[in-house]
């Protein structure tokens, strides 16, 4: 078979596999819980990355498999392969195409990043204190609690403080993961969109109690949230 025939067959196989898998991947929703605008962006980015990866994956896999099947030497055959020299167009093309894909992914990722971290405004503020091995939440009205409650459809600003080691607040359903670093204040924004009770955890190894540094948090409407807040005892020394 001529080189051209081989190429045509391989390219068709590649195109078919890519097309099918891209369509399948487009329907993918990877994250188990999506309950905020930020989580939605992350989930969508995951899907886009998967769709874009498919042709890359199949290009290599089809190239490997096809060669393994069709270009295998018979036992004892002394022949060498035909040297393929030059092909600078192919080389340049490969570099260019991967470059363009990567730039595309970068632009898309940057847009997502700006959407997640960009706007520095918030309707509701919570100050999170992490220590080995517990969470504590300080609310704007001067109360504090071991539970996190946030309002639905409001942009929430979380600030983080740690007294001892690095922790990391991970609220999977809200698409928040942010290290809590001693000596500086870190922050995150999120806009919850689905009411409910979810699990959160510490994502940065912080010692033997790291395993147990888990919590639950509640997304609820503002009325319920205020009612809950008013049940909390006021702290005298609230910052």
């Amino acid at each position: 078979m001529s080189m051209r025939r081989h190429l045509v067959i391989a390219v068709i196989a590649w195109a078919l596999l890519s097309a099918v898998s891209m369509v399948l991947a487009a329907g993918l929703s990877a994250m188990p819980e999506v309950a905020s605008q930020e989580a939605a962006i992350e989930n969508r980015t995951f899907t886009v990355l998967t769709v874009v990866s498919m042709p890359v994956l199949w290009l290599v896999v089809v190239g490997m498999t096809y060669s393994a099947l069709r270009f295998r030497a018979r036992d004892g055959e002394p022949e060498d392969g035909l040297p393929i020299h030059g092909h600078s167009a192919l080389q340049a093309g490969w570099v260019l195409v991967t470059f363009v894909m990567v730039i595309g992914l970068f632009v898309y990722g940057t847009v997502g990043l700006v959407e997640i971290r960009g706007a520095q405004t918030a309707d509701f503020q919570v100050e999170v204190h992490a220590k080995q091995w517990a969470w504590e939440f300080h609310y704007p009205n001067g109360t504090e609690s071991k539970e996190l409650h946030v309002p639905i459809n409001r942009r929430v600003h979380l600030t983080f403080l740690s007294d001892d080691v690095i922790h990391s607040m991970w609220l999977p359903a809200l698409g928040v993961k942010q290290d809590v670093v001693p000596g500086r204040t870190t922050e995150a924004y999120t806009t919850p969109t689905v009411a409910g009770t979810y699990g959160g955890r510490c994502a940065e190894l912080c010692g033997f109690g790291h395993t147990d540094m888990v919590m639950t948090f509640v997304v609820q409407d503002e009325g319920a949230l205020n009612a809950w807040l008013s049940t909390l005892p006021k702290q005298e020394h609230a910052q």
Binding site: M3, H6, V56, V60, G63, M64, S67, A68, F71, R72, A73, E77, E79, D80, G81, L82, I84, H87, L90, Q91, W94, V95, T98, F99, V102, L105, F106, G109, T110, L113
Partner: peptide, 27 residues
């Protein structure tokens, strides 16, 4: 983010080299 994703390009060349070598080879 830009530089990290860009490093895929030279790394990908290794795949081009390997595939270009096995293509039409006598494996």
């Amino acid at each position: 983010m830009l530089t990290t994703e860009l490093i895929s390009v030279p790394t990908g060349v290794v795949f081009l080299t390997a595939l270009g070598t096995i293509w039409m080879g006598r494996i």
